[in-house]
């Protein structure tokens, strides 16, 4: 199968994200995540990036719980059905309008959850875009002017997935040494040393291969849009317009 243009899915998921934010509806947000999951399932790449949808879902869940927690603890009082009451901490008088603790209403909890869900959905949509398009490919279709920025990003983005595999490897080794779950400091030091060495190696390799020597860069096999790409983007835009209209 001919690969998609790298911008196709980014455009599609950006449209969906705009739609989700505009519609501000939990049902639509969940539907969008479901749709994204289907697309990821069918068009996943086999690089280290394919897991980013999975990780973005986890990040989203963490975010929702943090949002809910802060929503319960801190905030402006809201009228409604009181679920339970937390002990209230009195703040000095020069901080009016903010309170910590106090009665928690159903309205406050649900609005916090709702906000969290919308943000988490947007994160999941970008995670999905990453899963189906390698960021390296995306960088290659960006205009030459921002190519320099692109390479900095290349280093950052190449080191990141390797970082995840290094964490797992070091954690396992430490786990076997001590027989208990290792503390962060035990992992951080070997990890930091390795990541620094990696970044330096990559920068060295790029320099040795002539990166930055010529003002303009040529492109091997420029990537063009096909009808299929346009169809996907158009359908994404239609859904977004529909969501906004609702």
């Amino acid at each position: 199968m001919k690969p998609f243009h790298p911008l196709t899915f980014w455009a599609l998921f950006s449209c969906l994200a705009v739609g989700v934010i505009a519609a501000d509806s939990a049902t639509l947000a969940l539907l969008a995540v479901g749709g994204a999951a289907l697309i990821v399932k069918f068009y996943k790449q086999d690089g280290p990036w394919s897991a980013s949808f999975h990780w973005s879902l986890i990040a989203g869940l963490v975010l929702i719980s943090i949002r809910a927690l802060t929503g319960i603890l801190i905030g402006v009082p809201r009228i409604g059905e009181v679920l339970f009451t937390l002990p209230r901490i009195n703040l000095p008088s020069w901080l009016p309008g903010i309170r910590i603790g106090g009665p928690v209403t159903w309205e406050r909890l649900s609005s916090s959850l709702h906000e969290g869900l919308i943000i988490a959905t947007v994160i999941a949509l970008f995670g999905a875009a990453n899963s189906v398009t390698s960021p390296h490919k995306l960088l290659r279709v960006l205009p030459s002017r921002i190519y320099q920025v692109g390479v900095t990003l290349t280093i950052a983005t190449s080191v990141f997935p390797q970082l995840i595999s290094s964490i797992a490897r070091i954690r396992q080794a430490q786990f076997l040494r001590s027989g208990s779950k290792p503390r962060i400091s035990r992992i951080a030091i070997p990890l930091l040393e390795e990541s620094l060495a990696r970044a330096v190696h990559l920068a060295e390799a790029m320099e040795a291969r002539g990166f930055g020597q010529s003002k303009s860069q040529s492109r091997y096999r420029p990537i063009n849009y096909s009808l299929r790409d346009l169809a996907w983007i158009a359908s994404g835009a239609l859904v977004a317009v529909g969501m906004v209209a609702l």
């Binding site: 390296h136 930055g212 040529s218 091997y220």
Partner: peptide, 24 residues
Amino acid sequence: LATFVTDIVEDELAFGMESLNFPP
């Protein structure tokens, strides 16, 4: 593996030549 810049075999080969602005 630590020195590869792209993630497809062909693109990796092209990287150095693209930097030096070789014609396609």
